[in-house]
Amino acid sequence: MIYVILTLVLLLLMVASAIYAIWQKDLLYAVIASGILSLFLSIVFVILQAPDVALTEAAIGVALTTIIFIIAIRNTVRYEDEHDKKKKVKTTTK
């Protein structure tokens, strides 16, 4: 019974963080939300009796994928429509 409630809460949080990751304009927040999704997903794997997969997901999904995205954001732009603002400024100064 307690596992059922825990699973339902985890699934709800997963879907919520996925929606937040797609909806958020700030890419850094979106990437952190997708890392949280992977964390909850690994707990769900433990509940579904798959400890091997949970270990892999916890190491790769939470740590490595998130850090690769963060490095990419540092090297490019942080906001989803940042280039638009620059362009508008350019056109008005001309």
Partner: peptide, 25 residues
């Protein structure tokens, strides 16, 4: 530990390798 005991407990080469990579990270 995780990849040496891969055939006894949950874990294995992929998991152990990624854990070592997070240490270097």
């Amino acid at each position: 530990y995780v990849f040496i005991h891969g055939h006894l407990s949950p874990g294995g080469g992929f998991q152990g390798g990624t854990i070592i990579a997070t240490g270097f990270l």
